[in-house]
Design a protein around this nucleic acid. Structure first.
Length: 561
DNA sequence: CGAGAGCCAT
């Protein structure tokens, strides 16, 4: 009897604790449906929904959101139309769905038609306008909305930042009543993006609670400044590193010419238990490109296949550059032809690849194909075309492309285009014409333009122009040793030894140090370094013998040509 | 169930 009573009370107790009201069942099922959609199991999610004896508005909303997040916008729309009862979230979800599919007008229609809006509706619509670069509309809504929260402000700040209106972004940031870590991060990355490192750093130091996202933005800032050691310190301080922070650090190394460290960090990343994604692969491929190390590049290419990123355009573009820098032109073409829809970067990349190897015909061919596919060339395309002419020594053609760019495509040449053209003119001994071109430029010549002129002067030993160009460069970039070295070389080639000594002395006074140039090659696991005049290599005599043979061979070939 | 942030290629 006692046992019976005990067990009965036990049962009653637990019954009340575990019994599911129909509301609980609906709630649990909704959560399950949402989770199934999140892992892309659409059919199973739908089956659960269909089998529900009773559904609430959240069930419908979960279904609607699940469909458009899996790329089935039309089904979301259909469900929205037939659902028995809608709440504000149903409407907001449809707004988000339209925005995701770039139907901004449809989104606004939902926004206007909905019976009542909450702050989320306004925020969704504002960020939609910002995504579609309709800033005026975003501002109008922001000003019209009855209440604003931290998300409204943050979305607007990000919008201003993306438009390059950093000042306005900052004003809003300062004026907002409450800031959270997202607002701080948006503002910091706005400064990083617009190369205002000190402002970014200042904000970062004042940020009360630094999460991994903000730290990653700051790491990017340090990397852009070339301060890799500082970036690494920040990176090491992160408590829980994620794929994005690893990618930022790897990219930093790759972009600062520290390919070995980028590759090493890729290994660390995998050891840390993180999978590399397309961002990682693009960056380590860039690292391989700068190292011109084909073996590692091919290994990464294998990873690209393994992780199924071989259809990613950016990855393919990075592969093209890698193979091009290693001189594997057949692989360059092979990767390119496998891209389903090459974008402007793909075309520019392959054009640049053949341009850099002086294969003018192929360069031209890809340019024609690009036009045939209806991709409009941009400034970078023309830069590649110009550089192709430079590598092939074709002055007339370069002037043709320059003219085509200006007059047929109505594009304003940038200083890089001028620098390229001036380089070509200089190499062909036309420094006077090159100087004329500088004088006719619609804007002030920069470091690159004067550098190209100075470099050109060594072909015709034009002392006057060389001195002028060197002077300009020293003014624009006082720490740069290149101008001093180049000028002194031109003096030396002209037999002006007293002037050579003068420049050397000037370098000491200005405390400019010549950077030693070196080249290297990796054979097996050994790295062989070579500096100019360096005879320390064990096989230096053999090397010199081979070089002499190559020179005489080249001369012989040139005679035939 | 809906709204805001960091990393990629010429």
């Amino acid at each position: 009897m006692l046992v019976w009573r005990l067990s009965r009370s036990y049962l009653v107790q637990n019954h009340t604790r575990f019994i599911h009201s129909s509301r609980d069942i609906i709630y649990a099922t909704n959560v399950r449906i949402g989770n199934l959609f999140r892992v892309g199991n659409i059919n199973h999610a739908r089956k659960l929904f269909d089998e529900m004896p009773k559904r609430d508005v959240v069930s419908w909303n979960t279904l609607i959101t699940g469909y458009w997040k899996n790329g089935l916008f039309q089904e979301s729309k259909r469900l929205f139309d037939i659902m028995p009862l809608r709440n504000v979230v149903s409407w907001n979800s449809m707004i988000a769905a339209c925005i995701e599919n770039r139907f901004i007008d449809a989104a606004f229609e939902y926004f206007q038609n909905m019976p009542d809006r909450n702050i989320g509706s306004w925020n969704a619509m504002i960020s939609g306008f910002i995504k579609c670069e309709m800033d005026d509309e975003a501002v109008t809504l922001f000003e019209q909305m009855p209440r604003r929260n931290v998300i409204s402000y943050t979305a607007m700040i990000d919008g201003y930042a993306k438009k390059g209106q950093i000042k306005k972004a900052r004003e809003l940031f300062d004026s907002m009543p409450i800031r959270n870590e997202v607002s701080w991060t948006v503002m910091i990355s706005a400064y990083v993006e617009s190369d205002q490192f000190n402002e970014a750093s200042d904000l970062f130091s004042r940020m009360p609670c630094k999460n991994v996202v903000a730290v990653t933005a700051m790491i990017t800032g340090y990397c852009k400044e070339g301060k890799m050691e500082d970036a690494r310190v920040l990176f090491n301080e992160i408590q829980c590193r994620d794929d994005v922070s690893f990618n930022a650090m790897i990219t930093g190394y790759a972009q600062n010419g520290r390919g070995e460290e980028a590759l090493r960090l890729l290994i660390d990343m995998r050891r840390y238990g993180l999978r590399s994604d397309q961002y990682t692969l693009v960056s380590v491929l860039a690292a391989c490109s700068s190292l011109a190390s084909l073996i590692e590049g091919k290994q990464i290419h294998a990873l690209v296949y393994k992780y199924r990123f071989d259809t990613d355009v950016s990855v393919s573009n990075a592969l093209i550059t890698m193979y091009s820098k290693s001189g594997c032109l057949p692989d360059v073409e092979q990767v390119f032809e496998k891209i389903c829809s090459p974008n402007i970067v793909s075309w520019n990349t392959i054009i640049a690849a053949f341009a850099q190897h002086g294969i003018y015909k192929k360069t031209l061919g890809f340019f024609e194909r690009m036009k045939f596919y209806g991709i409009e060339p941009d400034g970078i395309t023309f830069l590649s075309l110009l550089s192709a002419c430079g590598h092939a020594g074709m002055v007339m053609e370069s002037l043709y492309w320059f003219d085509l760019m200006k007059n047929t495509y109505n594009m304003a040449p940038r200083s890089e285009h001028y620098a390229c053209l001036i380089d070509i003119l200089g190499r062909s001994g036309q420094v006077e014409n090159a100087y004329k071109m500088i004088q006719d430029m619609p804007f002030e010549a920069d470091f690159g333009v004067w550098g190209a002129l100075l470099a050109g002067c060594r072909f015709s030993l034009n002392i006057k122009l060389a001195e002028l160009a060197a002077q300009k460069i020293m003014k624009l970039d006082p720490k740069n040793s290149g101008a001093y070295v180049m000028l002194s070389n031109i003096y030396a080639a002209s037999g002006l030894w007293r002037k050579v000594t003068q420049v050397r002395r000037l370098m000491k006074v200005d405390r400019v140090k010549k950077q030693t140039a070196y080249s290297w090659i990796e054979i097996g696991n050994t790295l062989h370094y070579f500096v100019g005049g360096d005879v320390s290599h064990l096989a230096i005599d053999d090397i010199h013998t081979v070089i002499k043979q190559m020179y005489s061979h080249m001369e012989a070939v040139e005679d035939i040509a």
